[in-house]
Simulated assay, not measured.
Amino acid sequence: MLRNVAVALLDGVNPFELGVVCEVFGTDRTDEGLPAYDFAVASAEGPVLRTEAGFTIRVDHGLERLESADLIAVPAGRSFDARSFPPELLDALRRGVARGARVASVCSGVFVLAAAGLLDGRRATVHWRHAEELKRQYPHLTVEPDVLYIDEGPVITSAGTAAGIDACLHLVRKEHGSEVANRIARRMVVPPHRDGGQAQYIERPVPRTGGDTVSDVLVWLQEHLDEEVTVEQLATRALMSPRTFARRFQQETGTTPYRWVLGQRVLLAQRLLEGTDETVDAIAGRTGFGTAAALRHHFVRAVGTTPNAYRRTFRGPEAA
Score class of each variant (00 low, 15 high):
P86E: 14
V24G: 08
S215R: 13
R265T: 07
T142V: 04
E88Y: 07
R95A: 15
S158I: 02
D120H: 03
V261R: 14
R204G: 06
L93D: 09
R123A: 10
A131Q: 12
T142A: 02
D60W: 01
L10K: 09
P307N: 12
T256W: 00
D60L: 04
R315S: 14
P257Q: 04
E64W: 00
E278M: 10
M188V: 15
R173I: 09
F85T: 08
P87C: 07
L63R: 06
L118E: 04
F16R: 01
L18A: 07
P242D: 10
T56D: 15
G164Y: 03
T209C: 06
V20F: 05
T244Y: 09
E52Y: 07
E23H: 09
A92Q: 03
G117F: 00
R65W: 00
R95C: 12
P242N: 10
T30D: 11
A116W: 01
T27Q: 09
A284P: 09
G263D: 01
R129K: 11
G196T: 04
E274W: 07
V126E: 00
E152G: 11
V155I: 15
A294E: 15
A162G: 07
A6T: 06
T209M: 12
A6Q: 02
Y37D: 09
P75C: 14
A92E: 03
V214H: 02
T30H: 08
G77F: 00
P207E: 03
N182M: 11
I72S: 01
T230S: 15
G304A: 12
E203S: 13
R271P: 06
V103G: 04
E23R: 10
T255C: 15
T125M: 10
G33N: 06
A159Q: 01
R312V: 05
L18H: 04
V206F: 02
Q270S: 11
N4D: 14
R237I: 05
R183I: 01
D38E: 09
A320N: 12
A53H: 13
E64K: 04
A8P: 04
V229C: 08
A73P: 15
V48W: 02
S215A: 15
D146C: 03
V48P: 01
V7W: 00
A319I: 11
G54P: 12
V20W: 01
H224S: 11
V59Y: 02
R194V: 06
K135T: 08
P154N: 14
E52S: 15
W260Y: 14
E67M: 04
A302F: 08
V74G: 01
G285Q: 13
Y149C: 12
A76N: 11
A199T: 14
G26P: 08
F85K: 04
T125L: 10
R83P: 12
V126G: 02
R83G: 13
V126T: 08
A292N: 07
T313G: 06
L148K: 08
G96P: 07
T306E: 09
T142I: 02
G285C: 11
F299Y: 01
M188D: 09
A6D: 03
R83M: 13
I156L: 15
G54Q: 10
V126K: 00
V13P: 01
D216A: 11
V189Q: 10
A98F: 06
W260F: 14
L141G: 04
E144W: 00
L218S: 13
T279M: 07
V126D: 04
I165Y: 07
V74M: 04
G197R: 03
M240E: 09
T213A: 14
L239Q: 11
G117P: 01
W220T: 06
I202P: 05
E223P: 05
